[in-house]
Amino acid sequence: MKESRFGAWLALIIGTLYFVVPLIGTFEFSLRMRRGVYSFDAYRVVLSDPRFQASFGYSTVLAVATIIVGVLLVVPTAYWVQLRLPRLRPVVEFITLLPLVIPAIVLVFGYLRIYNSSSWIPFTAHERTTDLLLTFSYVTLALPYMYRAVDTGLRAIDVRTLTEAAETLGAGWPRILFSVILPNVRTAVLSGAFLTFAIVIGEFTMASLLDRPAFGPYLQLMGANRAYEPSALAIIAFVVTWACMGLIQVFGRGKAAARRPAGR
Protein backbone atom coordinates (compact mmCIF):
# COMPACT_ATOMS: atom_id res chain seq x y z
CA MET A 1 0.00 0.00 0.00
CA LYS A 2 2.86 2.30 0.86
CA GLU A 3 4.36 1.78 -2.57
CA SER A 4 1.19 2.80 -4.40
CA ARG A 5 0.91 5.92 -2.27
CA PHE A 6 4.42 6.91 -3.32
CA GLY A 7 3.35 6.54 -6.94
CA ALA A 8 0.29 8.68 -6.30
CA TRP A 9 2.41 11.44 -4.75
CA LEU A 10 4.83 11.25 -7.64
CA ALA A 11 2.01 11.56 -10.19
CA LEU A 12 0.59 14.47 -8.25
CA ILE A 13 3.91 16.31 -8.01
CA ILE A 14 4.73 15.87 -11.70
CA GLY A 15 1.19 16.89 -12.64
CA THR A 16 1.34 19.96 -10.41
CA LEU A 17 4.68 20.98 -11.89
CA TYR A 18 3.40 20.64 -15.44
CA PHE A 19 0.27 22.64 -14.74
CA VAL A 20 1.65 25.32 -12.42
CA VAL A 21 4.98 26.13 -14.09
CA PRO A 22 3.41 27.62 -17.27
CA LEU A 23 1.19 29.80 -15.09
CA ILE A 24 4.19 31.04 -13.10
CA GLY A 25 6.13 31.50 -16.33
CA THR A 26 3.32 33.51 -17.87
CA PHE A 27 2.90 35.65 -14.80
CA GLU A 28 6.63 36.31 -14.53
CA PHE A 29 6.78 37.21 -18.21
CA SER A 30 3.84 39.58 -17.88
CA LEU A 31 5.76 41.54 -15.21
CA ARG A 32 8.88 42.06 -17.35
CA MET A 33 7.66 44.99 -19.43
CA ARG A 34 9.68 47.63 -17.62
CA ARG A 35 13.35 46.92 -18.12
CA GLY A 36 15.23 45.51 -15.13
CA VAL A 37 12.36 45.61 -12.65
CA TYR A 38 9.06 43.79 -12.21
CA SER A 39 6.01 45.94 -12.79
CA PHE A 40 2.35 45.70 -13.72
CA ASP A 41 2.91 47.91 -16.75
CA ALA A 42 1.71 45.26 -19.21
CA TYR A 43 -1.59 45.00 -17.34
CA ARG A 44 -1.96 48.77 -17.25
CA VAL A 45 -1.31 49.02 -20.96
CA VAL A 46 -3.72 46.20 -21.76
CA LEU A 47 -6.53 47.37 -19.51
CA SER A 48 -6.36 50.93 -20.84
CA ASP A 49 -6.28 49.79 -24.47
CA PRO A 50 -9.61 50.86 -26.01
CA ARG A 51 -9.55 47.83 -28.31
CA PHE A 52 -9.27 45.56 -25.27
CA GLN A 53 -12.26 47.22 -23.67
CA ALA A 54 -14.26 47.14 -26.89
CA SER A 55 -13.52 43.52 -27.78
CA PHE A 56 -13.91 42.24 -24.23
CA GLY A 57 -17.19 44.13 -23.93
CA TYR A 58 -18.36 42.78 -27.27
CA SER A 59 -17.58 39.19 -26.28
CA THR A 60 -19.26 39.65 -22.91
CA VAL A 61 -22.46 40.88 -24.56
CA LEU A 62 -22.28 38.00 -27.01
CA ALA A 63 -21.75 35.49 -24.19
CA VAL A 64 -24.79 36.82 -22.34
CA ALA A 65 -26.89 36.67 -25.52
CA THR A 66 -25.64 33.12 -26.12
CA ILE A 67 -26.64 32.10 -22.59
CA ILE A 68 -30.13 33.61 -22.96
CA VAL A 69 -30.78 32.00 -26.33
CA GLY A 70 -29.27 28.73 -25.13
CA VAL A 71 -31.44 28.60 -22.01
CA LEU A 72 -34.58 29.48 -23.95
CA LEU A 73 -33.79 26.74 -26.44
CA VAL A 74 -32.55 24.00 -24.13
CA VAL A 75 -34.77 24.23 -21.03
CA PRO A 76 -38.14 23.89 -22.80
CA THR A 77 -36.77 21.15 -25.05
CA ALA A 78 -35.23 19.08 -22.26
CA TYR A 79 -38.35 19.60 -20.15
CA TRP A 80 -40.67 18.62 -22.94
CA VAL A 81 -38.62 15.55 -23.86
CA GLN A 82 -38.60 14.41 -20.25
CA LEU A 83 -42.32 15.01 -19.74
CA ARG A 84 -43.96 14.06 -23.03
CA LEU A 85 -41.51 12.61 -25.52
CA PRO A 86 -39.11 10.36 -23.59
CA ARG A 87 -38.71 8.20 -26.68
CA LEU A 88 -37.17 11.16 -28.45
CA ARG A 89 -34.43 11.42 -25.83
CA PRO A 90 -31.76 9.43 -27.74
CA VAL A 91 -32.32 11.53 -30.86
CA VAL A 92 -32.12 14.82 -28.97
CA GLU A 93 -29.07 13.65 -27.02
CA PHE A 94 -27.38 12.58 -30.23
CA ILE A 95 -28.00 15.97 -31.80
CA THR A 96 -26.64 17.78 -28.75
CA LEU A 97 -23.45 15.73 -29.07
CA LEU A 98 -22.94 16.69 -32.72
CA PRO A 99 -21.06 19.95 -31.96
CA LEU A 100 -18.39 17.78 -30.33
CA VAL A 101 -18.19 15.65 -33.46
CA ILE A 102 -18.13 18.42 -36.06
CA PRO A 103 -15.18 20.76 -35.52
CA ALA A 104 -16.13 24.42 -35.01
CA ILE A 105 -14.11 25.47 -38.04
CA VAL A 106 -16.16 23.11 -40.23
CA LEU A 107 -19.45 24.44 -38.82
CA VAL A 108 -18.54 28.04 -39.53
CA PHE A 109 -17.35 27.04 -43.00
CA GLY A 110 -20.83 25.64 -43.59
CA TYR A 111 -22.47 28.83 -42.30
CA LEU A 112 -20.36 30.95 -44.63
CA ARG A 113 -21.45 28.80 -47.53
CA ILE A 114 -25.19 28.76 -46.94
CA TYR A 115 -25.73 32.09 -45.14
CA ASN A 116 -23.59 34.34 -47.35
CA SER A 117 -24.92 37.62 -48.61
CA SER A 118 -26.35 36.13 -51.80
CA SER A 119 -28.15 33.19 -50.15
CA TRP A 120 -31.80 32.84 -49.13
CA ILE A 121 -31.00 33.77 -45.51
CA PRO A 122 -28.21 36.35 -45.89
CA PHE A 123 -27.00 36.37 -42.29
CA THR A 124 -23.58 37.74 -43.20
CA ALA A 125 -24.92 40.65 -45.26
CA HIS A 126 -25.00 43.08 -42.31
CA GLU A 127 -22.99 43.47 -39.12
CA ARG A 128 -25.98 43.06 -36.84
CA THR A 129 -27.20 39.88 -38.53
CA THR A 130 -23.64 38.52 -38.47
CA ASP A 131 -23.68 39.13 -34.71
CA LEU A 132 -26.87 37.12 -34.62
CA LEU A 133 -25.27 34.32 -36.62
CA LEU A 134 -22.25 34.36 -34.30
CA THR A 135 -24.59 34.12 -31.30
CA PHE A 136 -26.33 31.13 -32.83
CA SER A 137 -23.01 29.49 -33.62
CA TYR A 138 -21.95 29.96 -29.99
CA VAL A 139 -25.26 28.45 -28.86
CA THR A 140 -24.34 25.49 -31.04
CA LEU A 141 -20.86 25.24 -29.51
CA ALA A 142 -22.29 25.37 -25.99
CA LEU A 143 -25.18 23.01 -26.75
CA PRO A 144 -23.50 19.80 -25.48
CA TYR A 145 -22.62 21.40 -22.13
CA MET A 146 -25.83 23.35 -21.69
CA TYR A 147 -28.04 20.38 -22.54
CA ARG A 148 -26.18 17.99 -20.26
CA ALA A 149 -26.29 20.44 -17.34
CA VAL A 150 -30.02 21.15 -17.74
CA ASP A 151 -30.93 17.51 -18.38
CA THR A 152 -29.10 16.42 -15.22
CA GLY A 153 -30.92 19.13 -13.29
CA LEU A 154 -34.32 18.05 -14.65
CA ARG A 155 -33.69 14.42 -13.79
CA ALA A 156 -33.08 15.39 -10.18
CA ILE A 157 -36.55 16.94 -9.76
CA ASP A 158 -39.98 15.42 -10.19
CA VAL A 159 -41.00 17.16 -13.40
CA ARG A 160 -44.33 15.36 -13.75
CA THR A 161 -45.62 16.12 -10.27
CA LEU A 162 -44.52 19.73 -10.45
CA THR A 163 -46.23 20.17 -13.80
CA GLU A 164 -49.44 18.52 -12.65
CA ALA A 165 -49.51 20.59 -9.46
CA ALA A 166 -49.00 23.79 -11.44
CA GLU A 167 -51.66 22.78 -13.94
CA THR A 168 -54.13 22.02 -11.14
CA LEU A 169 -53.50 25.49 -9.76
CA GLY A 170 -54.36 26.92 -13.16
CA ALA A 171 -50.91 27.82 -14.47
CA GLY A 172 -50.42 28.05 -18.23
CA TRP A 173 -47.37 26.72 -20.10
CA PRO A 174 -45.23 29.87 -19.97
CA ARG A 175 -45.89 30.13 -16.27
CA ILE A 176 -45.07 26.46 -15.64
CA LEU A 177 -41.81 26.82 -17.52
CA PHE A 178 -40.65 30.13 -16.09
CA SER A 179 -42.09 30.12 -12.56
CA VAL A 180 -42.00 26.43 -11.72
CA ILE A 181 -39.46 24.51 -13.77
CA LEU A 182 -36.79 27.13 -14.34
CA PRO A 183 -36.34 28.07 -10.64
CA ASN A 184 -36.04 24.37 -9.80
CA VAL A 185 -33.20 23.82 -12.24
CA ARG A 186 -31.59 27.17 -11.49
CA THR A 187 -28.32 25.64 -10.32
CA ALA A 188 -28.03 23.46 -13.41
CA VAL A 189 -28.84 26.39 -15.68
CA LEU A 190 -26.28 28.58 -13.92
CA SER A 191 -23.52 26.02 -14.21
CA GLY A 192 -24.33 25.61 -17.89
CA ALA A 193 -24.31 29.40 -18.20
CA PHE A 194 -20.89 29.91 -16.62
CA LEU A 195 -19.41 27.13 -18.70
CA THR A 196 -20.88 28.78 -21.79
CA PHE A 197 -19.35 32.08 -20.73
CA ALA A 198 -15.92 30.47 -20.32
CA ILE A 199 -16.18 28.92 -23.79
CA VAL A 200 -17.46 32.02 -25.58
CA ILE A 201 -15.32 34.76 -24.05
CA GLY A 202 -12.04 33.82 -25.74
CA GLU A 203 -13.38 31.93 -28.75
CA PHE A 204 -11.27 32.63 -31.80
CA THR A 205 -12.17 30.52 -34.85
CA MET A 206 -15.80 31.48 -35.42
CA ALA A 207 -15.43 35.15 -34.51
CA SER A 208 -12.37 35.48 -36.72
CA LEU A 209 -13.91 33.76 -39.75
CA LEU A 210 -17.15 35.73 -39.39
CA ASP A 211 -14.94 38.80 -39.11
CA ARG A 212 -16.37 40.17 -35.88
CA PRO A 213 -14.34 42.27 -33.39
CA ALA A 214 -14.45 39.76 -30.52
CA PHE A 215 -11.92 39.13 -27.76
CA GLY A 216 -10.42 36.03 -29.40
CA PRO A 217 -9.30 37.77 -32.61
CA TYR A 218 -8.02 40.67 -30.48
CA LEU A 219 -5.90 38.20 -28.48
CA GLN A 220 -4.49 36.78 -31.70
CA LEU A 221 -3.65 40.26 -32.99
CA MET A 222 -1.84 41.16 -29.77
CA GLY A 223 0.05 37.88 -29.84
CA ALA A 224 1.32 38.61 -33.31
CA ASN A 225 2.43 42.18 -32.56
CA ARG A 226 3.37 42.58 -28.91
CA ALA A 227 5.82 41.00 -26.48
CA TYR A 228 4.55 41.33 -22.90
CA GLU A 229 0.89 42.17 -23.27
CA PRO A 230 -0.05 38.65 -24.44
CA SER A 231 1.15 37.19 -21.14
CA ALA A 232 -0.91 39.70 -19.21
CA LEU A 233 -3.89 38.80 -21.39
CA ALA A 234 -3.31 35.08 -20.80
CA ILE A 235 -3.34 35.67 -17.05
CA ILE A 236 -6.54 37.73 -17.37
CA ALA A 237 -8.14 34.96 -19.48
CA PHE A 238 -7.06 32.37 -16.94
CA VAL A 239 -8.59 34.39 -14.11
CA VAL A 240 -11.86 34.73 -16.05
CA THR A 241 -11.97 30.96 -16.70
CA TRP A 242 -11.16 30.29 -13.07
CA ALA A 243 -13.91 32.69 -11.95
CA CYS A 244 -16.47 30.89 -14.13
CA MET A 245 -15.53 27.48 -12.74
CA GLY A 246 -15.43 28.88 -9.20
CA LEU A 247 -18.93 30.30 -9.58
CA ILE A 248 -20.18 26.90 -10.76
CA GLN A 249 -18.76 25.36 -7.59
CA VAL A 250 -20.20 28.09 -5.38
CA PHE A 251 -23.70 27.72 -6.80
CA GLY A 252 -23.46 23.94 -6.79
CA ARG A 253 -22.54 23.93 -3.12
CA GLY A 254 -25.26 26.46 -2.30
CA LYS A 255 -27.80 24.09 -3.78
CA ALA A 256 -26.55 21.07 -1.86
CA ALA A 257 -26.70 23.04 1.38
CA ALA A 258 -30.15 24.40 0.66
CA ARG A 259 -31.54 21.02 -0.19
CA ARG A 260 -30.41 19.14 2.88
CA PRO A 261 -32.71 20.86 5.44
CA ALA A 262 -35.67 20.41 3.13
CA GLY A 263 -35.15 16.66 3.22
CA ARG A 264 -36.04 14.12 0.61
Binding site: P22, F29, I199, G202, G223, P230, L233, T241, M245
Partner: peptide, 27 residues
Protein backbone atom coordinates in the same frame (compact mmCIF):
# COMPACT_ATOMS: atom_id res chain seq x y z
CA UNK B 1 -11.71 21.96 -9.83
CA UNK B 2 -8.35 22.71 -11.40
CA UNK B 3 -9.04 20.22 -14.18
CA UNK B 4 -12.36 21.93 -14.86
CA UNK B 5 -10.50 25.20 -15.31
CA UNK B 6 -7.54 23.81 -17.27
CA UNK B 7 -9.69 21.80 -19.68
CA UNK B 8 -11.39 25.08 -20.61
CA UNK B 9 -8.18 27.09 -20.67
CA UNK B 10 -7.42 26.38 -24.29
CA UNK B 11 -7.01 28.44 -27.39
CA UNK B 12 -4.91 31.55 -27.77
CA UNK B 13 -4.27 32.35 -24.07
CA UNK B 14 -2.85 28.83 -23.66
CA UNK B 15 -0.49 29.46 -26.55
CA UNK B 16 0.64 32.70 -24.87
CA UNK B 17 1.27 30.85 -21.62
CA UNK B 18 3.54 28.30 -23.28
CA UNK B 19 5.37 30.97 -25.28
CA UNK B 20 6.07 32.82 -22.05
CA UNK B 21 7.29 29.61 -20.42
CA UNK B 22 9.11 27.62 -23.08
CA UNK B 23 9.60 30.20 -25.82
CA UNK B 24 13.10 31.44 -26.59
CA UNK B 25 12.96 34.02 -23.80
CA UNK B 26 10.47 32.11 -21.65
CA UNK B 27 10.98 31.60 -17.93
Amino acid sequence: TFCGVASNFAGIPLAFAFLATLGRTGL
